[in-house]
Simulated scan of single mutants.
Amino acid sequence: MNAYDKLQQLGIELPPLSAPAAAYVPYVITGNRIYLSGHIARKDGKPHVGRLGHNLTTVDGQAAARHIAIDMLGTLHAALGDLSRINRIVKVMSLVCSTPDFTEQHLVTNGCSELLAEVLGERGQHARSAFGVVQIPLGACVEIELIAEIS
């Protein structure tokens, strides 16, 4: 099953490319790699604000990370024209706005990682880092960036 069939099966419609919120571009292609700028969590079209371990749970964070994965797939589609050009998601880096005692950043990030693997299969499995941070732009609860090998 290709990525578009899987998205349809999951009831996911890819969003259009979002405009950058500052002085950067949403992605850069160089050689056989695409680098996606950080995508923040959004809810109802606005930044999904909050802090894990304070007013958001791990499950809330996983849902936010899953939505970010959908946004990133939309960016990849806009950039590449076809998700079949993705040879492999190489690396995902996740920033989770969290309290000092919150230690489940890795579980929050699973919301993104699991969807990428579900949609892209083995090509969606990747290396990863997940960090807890004090603040993310616009008060977002999660921000994720991605590097992929493309053809």
Rank of each mutant, 00 (worst) to 15 (best):
E118A: 08
H106W: 04
A130I: 10
P47W: 03
L80N: 08
V49R: 15
P20L: 03
V108H: 05
A130C: 12
S113C: 06
T75N: 06
V142Y: 05
Q8T: 13
H39Q: 15
A65N: 02
A148C: 10
Q125A: 04
I12F: 14
L80K: 06
A19N: 14
L107G: 00
F131C: 11
S151I: 08
A78L: 11
C141R: 00
P47Y: 02
G53C: 03
R42V: 06
R42A: 02
C97F: 01
T75R: 00
T75C: 06
L73I: 09
R128P: 08
L115Y: 02
R33T: 15
V96W: 05
G38Y: 04
I34F: 00
D44C: 02
Y35A: 11
I147N: 01
Y24I: 10
Y35S: 12
K91M: 08
M93N: 08
V108Y: 02
G50Y: 02
T99V: 13
T99N: 09
C97Y: 01
T58C: 06
V96N: 05
S84F: 01
L7Y: 03
L115M: 06
A64Q: 03
G31E: 15
H77R: 14
A21H: 07
E143K: 02
I147V: 14
V134G: 11
I86A: 04
V28T: 12
A140Q: 13
V28N: 03
P16G: 04
S37V: 02
G53P: 02
T109A: 11
